[in-house]
């Protein structure tokens, strides 16, 4: 009667074994999309069902979990998933990047450099980088198998022909370990260089599309480009309005209907740590250390 209604970290052990096998295969073939028997999760598709399954499969009782959504630790999605695992696995959670052993992320890589004892789990909506150019799954699989990636450059060519530069700003295609072209999930291309030679293991889970892929630690990840139009990460040309950071990825926040806007770090943990350390920006409340409800 007292047995819990669900297993540690929600999924049953057989399901976790199945997912772990897919993860191992994905790590063995960097960038290759491994099909897996994605389960129904108690959340809608598009909310990170793939990421949650990967996290559930790799989570151990000693792990410390951090969940971010667009860099933020305090959005509905991030809080829900963090609470979900706090409840179903009883693991410790954190918002500090350096304390986490498993970080589930939607659309960002933390600003703080990741270490070899960390795993980054991405939520992926559409794993196939060739999808919008080639709708047939049979054909895209064949193209991956034969490494026929000319089509990926057709997309970049179109960007330059239309906008004068490579206008793809997120989900920017990369080539992993010199072989597979991979969609890095909709992270901004600002984050692409962080994937290259990263000490942390990077896992990608697409729940609806039933695919898992991976970048093992210290793997070469190259963003595709043209010789005369090289890859360039994009960042708003402004310091963070709260912490003054000059090198972090910024969110643009519209503050009124007269064209007023502010730029703040999308990585909330990074921004808060900088503020605690005494950095401040043009719009910091003064004195910023005092809290309104202190």
């Amino acid at each position: 009667m007292n047995a819990p209604a669900y297993n540690f970290a929600y999924l049953d052990e057989q399901t976790k074994r199945m997912i772990r096998r897919a993860i191992l295969k994905a790590i063995a073939i960097p960038g290759y999309q491994v099909p897996f028997a994605s389960r129904e999760m108690p959340m809608p598709y598009g909310w990170g069902t793939g990421g949650v399954q990967v996290t559930a499969a790799i989570l151990g009782p000693d792990d410390v979990l951090k969940v971010i959504d667009q860099g933020s630790d305090d959005t509905t999605n991030a809080i829900s998933i963090r609470k979900f695992f706090a409840k179903t696995a009883g693991v410790a959670t954190t918002t500090a990047t350096e304390n986490a052993t498993v970080i589930q992320t939607r659309h960002r890589i933390p600003e703080t450099a990741l270490g070899p004892n960390q795993v980054l789990v991405y939520q992926v909506p559409i794993p196939e980088p060739l999808r919008f150019l080639e709708p047939r799954e049979t054909e895209t699989r064949r193209m991956h198998a034969l490494a026929e990636y000319g089509l990926m450059h057709v997309k970049l060519y179109e960007d330059i022909a239309r906008f004068g530069h490579i206008a793809t700003a997120y989900a920017y295609p990369v080539k992993v370990n010199g072989r597979y072209v991979m969609d890095p999930s909709p992270t901004p291309k600002f984050d692409n260089p962080k994937m290259d030679n990263c000490p942390a293991l990077q896992l990608f889970g697409a729940g609806r599309e039933k695919r898992i892929y991976a970048i093992p630690p210290y793997t070469q990840v190259v963003s595709l480009d043209f010789e005369d139009h090289p890859f360039e990460p994009y960042r708003f040309n402004a310091p963070c309005a709260l912490c003054g950071a000059e090198n972090s990825y910024l969110d643009e926040i519209v503050t009124d209907d007269k064209g007023g806007r502010m730029f703040v770090c999308s990585d909330t943990d990074f921004c808060e740590e900088r503020q605690t350390a005494g950095h401040h920006g043009s719009l910091s409340a003064a004195p910023y250390k005092e809290k309104a409800h202190g």
Partner: peptide, 10 residues
């Protein structure tokens, strides 16, 4: 076709 055979200069 050019990109498919490795042309990489826009």
């Amino acid at each position: 076709r050019l990109m498919a055979v490795g042309w990489n200069h826009y």
